[in-house]
């Protein structure tokens, strides 16, 4: 019985690993493959020429610039709008607080494509289609929940006794916030900022609807890329697109695995 359970668990782990990692390895190895004939499990040879093809393409450079610009601006705008709100939700009691917390959730509760279609109709009227502002609005909307809820949970987690201690020692409210509350909440704010950056970096459907064809980002280029280029080119492109997300998330993996993301998704 014991051994049977062990075998079953090992089998489950193996299958899950193949299920998750398999597609990534299969795709990534294509970026270095000369040619790959079915049903071989191995390419005919290895080459770097697909990287040349991608790197030399001016379209990629433009998409990369667009993606980086949109993502950075999105994080800054979102932080400016949401962080004060996060603090308020955590520390102040005011009428309608509960309602507002639930209303914030509304953005996530609405199915993305439906929301974008509704938004696009409004953007036509306001002439925001194919504009930087229009794309930015779409991106910021996708980050509001991260930027409000995760920092709010972190502000709430700062022990009141520490803040009171600082106040007793004569620190004013700004000083208390700046030297006690903020440093303790900073890791979670970093998690929120990185999640927002990635949300913007990965956003494809809304950007495509609102920004294409004038403002193509990396993920929206992927839509047309897979149709028009050999699979090795899209494999190279996939690696280029995944590296920034993966790198940034690795920075905060401890906080995310430790439950700060999960903590942020529970209304308190």
């Amino acid at each position: 019985m014991r051994t049977l359970v062990k075998v079953l668990i090992s089998l489950f782990m193996f299958l899950l690993a193949v299920f998750i990692v398999g597609p990534l390895v299969w795709l990534a190895s294509r970026a270095f493959a000369a040619e790959w004939r079915y049903p071989d499990l191995w390419p005919t040879g290895f080459t770097l020429r697909w990287w040349r093809v991608v790197v030399d393409d001016p379209m990629v450079v433009v998409a990369l610039q667009n993606s980086a610009t949109f993502a950075s601006l999105t994080v800054l705008i979102s932080a400016a709008i949401c962080l004060p709100a996060a603090y308020a939700f955590s520390r102040y009691q005011f009428p309608g607080r509960r309602f507002m917390l639930v209303a914030l959730f509304a953005v996530n509760a609405f199915p993305k494509m439906g929301l974008f279609v509704a938004l696009a109709s409004l953007f036509y009227a306001l002439q925001l289609m194919q504009t930087v502002l229009g794309v930015l609005i779409v991106h910021v909307l996708g980050t509001v929940v991260f930027m409000t809820w995760i920092p709010a949970a972190a502000f709430s987690a700062v022990p009141r006794s520490l803040e009171e201690a600082a106040r007793d020692a004569g620190a004013g409210p700004f000083r208390v916030f700046w030297s006690v509350t903020l440093p303790m909440a900073l890791p979670a704010i970093l998690v929120a900022a990185i999640m927002s950056f990635i949300a913007s970096w990965d956003e494809a459907q809304g950007t495509y609807l609102v920004g294409a064809p004038d403002y193509m980002t990396m993920p929206t280029q992927m839509y047309s890329l897979v149709l028009n280029y050999p699979s090795q080119v899209s494999a190279v492109f996939s690696i280029l697109l995944s590296v920034p997300s993966a790198g940034l998330l690795l920075l905060v993996r401890k906080q995310i695995m430790g439950g700060q993301l999960a903590e942020g998704f529970q209304i308190k």
Binding site: I81, C82, P84, A85, Y87, A88, F89, R91, Y92, Q93, F94, P95, G96, R97, M100, A103, L104, A106, V107, F110, L115, A118, L119, S121, L122, I137, V140, L141, V144, M147, T148
Partner: peptide, 21 residues
């Protein structure tokens, strides 16, 4: 003060989610 600090994201959502819907 809490209400004022909490409103910007709500206004954003009202304008670009609630209203378009």
């Amino acid at each position: 003060r809490g209400l004022l600090m909490a409103s910007p994201p709500l206004l954003l959502i009202a304008a670009f989610t609630g209203f378009p819907i």
